[in-house]
Design a protein around this nucleic acid. Structure first.
Lengths: 253, 253
DNA sequence: CCTTCTCTAGGTACAGCGTACGTAGAAGCG
DNA sequence: CGCTTCTACGTACGCTGTACCTAGAGAAGG
């Protein structure tokens, strides 16, 4: 997440009048989006790896040890490659994350066409997404941090637009609806992850909230705290809020 | 975002039978939540700084140069302190982020009591949150990454519960509603940020989407792309979706 | 065929990160 | 006054992303 000014890339000539020969000829402007760079140009030796295998290796590490364990060195080592060789495939680490994102987005099983029941189709998409997020605990954080539109995400988007076509909403409105829809699911999954992360953390939090409630400064919080039932079944809570979100999407303007 | 196993802290005795004297006596279990640690114990010299001043310094850096520029060294330097001195106030960098989060949460101007118009009160909260997020571009990313419940967040939560009390929903349901509400706003702000980040990026994206649409593989995307009007006023889009979200919250079960 | 040129692989090196640890001295308590 | 406990901070370690360079593999053009 570079803040505002990336260092503008290379521009690496040593002296203004030097001949083009030495070093790199500075490919004038490589696209920033990795999906716009061809994976292979056809010249030179065949690459020993592929974007897919790299993404798979990174995903394996992230699944097993968390997103923080995914470093260029680790991934390269997992592939049996030298660290810097990875940079021939992935110009920046950001792009590695993009590859990971799109690879897991490929796990959706999208039906060839909408069923006609918008609610059911959306619920299916939602449950698939929640499942994918649960299989890859690092995914919600990544989805929230960076919007990425790889080929598989395009497939998904197209399908979502198809499913919501009967609503009569325009293209832009349906894109907004998709953002709301995915955002809710992702955040739900993210919350599940952090909640599951630490029992000790949770115990501390409960103590802290109880103490806050007891202080008298937060009467409504105290009341909600006091009337809270047993911790709800997460799947029930998900479906309950999902219903509300779908209703919000389908509601007439 | 530590994945699952933090290294369990210190436990730092060198030999089992060594006397307790050397080094640190290992305070047996300091709470992980920074809000549970007292800022001051009363012994020893008066600290030269405070959590507030530290948070302010960090926020200043983040506002000016982005979240990545906020490092322990930078913050300490901004305070005129040695790097490691910061660790007397903030046991881990995570906690520094918690302090930043709660400090900006203090920017809400909460009325002493709900007005009685639930929709209006929620809209006010939403616009305040959007404003805060726009003032601090790094905030959405942080809000999405880590749930944090500092004192100011408790104030906010209590107010939200008060505002939504007339809905008749239970405490748990209103907490879920708050998550949905805040999540939507945060994601909207986050999206605004990334969109504003790079014109070049946006141009590339448009080209990429156009190319994808032209490929014929994504008919609905192509159609949405073709019928898209001029880019909508973000504030209009925000209010439009906000209305839907509020309706979803207020809808009877 | 050979030459040429482009591509890949990978090592080395650097700046910067979070933070463990140890030391020196100040301030409150008995 | 001492004892204890705190604060301040320098040094050092392992890790990160990645700029840059050197070899050599292998397709394209003559």
């Amino acid at each position: 997440m570079p803040s505002s000014k990336p260092p503008t890339g290379s521009e690496s000539h040593k002296s203004p009048d030097a001949p083009q020969q030495p070093g790199r000829p500075t490919p004038p402007e490589a696209p920033e989006l990795i999906w716009l760079r061809p994976e292979r140009t056809g010249r030179g030796p065949r690459p020993a790896h592929s974007r897919d295998s790299i993404a798979a290796a990174a995903i394996g590490i992230a699944d097993a040890e968390g997103l923080d364990a995914v470093s260029m060195r680790r991934v390269a080592a997992a592939l049996g490659a030298g660290t810097m060789s990875l940079y021939n495939y992935v110009p920046k680490k950001e792009h590695l994350l993009d590859l990971m994102l799109d690879a897991v987005t490929g796990e959706y099983r999208l039906p060839p066409a909408p069923s006609g029941d918008v609610r059911a189709d959306l619920a299916d998409l939602a449950h698939q997404q929640l499942g994918i997020c649960r299989r890859h605990p690092w995914l919600p954080a990544l989805l929230l941090a960076r919007p990425s539109l790889g080929p598989n995400a395009l497939r998904y988007t197209d399908h979502f637009l198809a499913v919501t076509a009967p609503t009569g909403l325009g293209g832009g409105a349906r894109m907004e609806a998709m953002a709301l829809f995915n955002g809710f699911i992702t955040q739900f999954a993210q919350y599940e992850q952090t909640a599951a992360a630490g029992a000790k953390w949770q115990a501390e939090l409960v103590g802290y909230l109880g103490q806050a409630a007891a202080s008298g400064d937060f009467p409504h919080l105290a009341q909600a705290f006091a009337t809270a039932g047993p911790p709800a079944d997460p799947d029930k809570a998900f479906d309950r809020t999902l219903d509300r979100v779908i209703s919000a999407i389908l509601a007439p303007t």
